[in-house]
């Protein structure tokens, strides 16, 4: 038998169709069912479950991230408010202390002025009385001198 039998061979040949064809078709259909049960369904289930898991985890993570950002903003706002309040308290306290200082200063000044005035008045009156005294003394002395002079005559 020649090793190269092509068309029209009574036995063998490249294009030798026989019951191999339907049997192979049946075998492939059977294999499809077996692989569907053993491979496509279970692997598909695992892969799709994981895809779902990843998807839900991602959305959850996004949600949590948004929440965290919101909280951060809230805290930042609170912090800003607290800073402003603190600043206000400080400036108020500064203004208060300034006012108190000025008041105290004015009071001290006026007291000092008053006491100075009083002292000056006292000095004035004492000078006045000393002058008067002097005047009367001078008058008395004058009189004495006059009397002495008159007496000596």
């Amino acid at each position: 038998m020649s090793s190269l039998l092509l068309f029209g061979a009574s036995e063998g040949g490249l294009f030798d169709f026989d019951a191999t064809l339907p049997l192979m078709a049946a075998q492939v259909v059977l294999l499809t069912y077996i692989l569907n049960v053993l491979f496509f369904k279970p692997v598909g289930k695992v892969v799709e479950e994981r895809e779902d898991y990843v998807l839900t985890s991602r959305t959850e993570a996004k949600k949590k991230l948004a929440e965290v950002e919101k909280l951060e903003n809230d805290l930042k706002n609170q912090l800003k408010g607290a800073r402003q309040a603190a600043q206000k308290v400080i400036s108020e306290a500064e203004a208060d202390s300034e006012k108190l200082y000025k008041e105290a200063l004015a009071l001290a000044n006026s007291e000092a002025n008053a006491s100075r005035e009083k002292v000056r008045k006292e000095i004035d009156s004492q000078r006045e009385s000393a002058l008067n005294q002097l005047k009367s003394d001078a008058d008395k002395l004058g009189d004495l001198i006059v009397q002495k002079l008159l007496a000596a005559k």
């Binding site: 090793s3 030798d16 026989d18």
Partner: peptide
């Protein structure tokens, strides 16, 4: 090199290519 030769299995009137299966 063998081209177009088959190992035949006979089932009644049906013949199939054994080496393929």
């Amino acid at each position: 090199l063998e081209v177009g030769q088959h190992l035949y299995w006979q089932f009644g009137k049906l013949r199939i290519h054994g080496q393929v299966f």
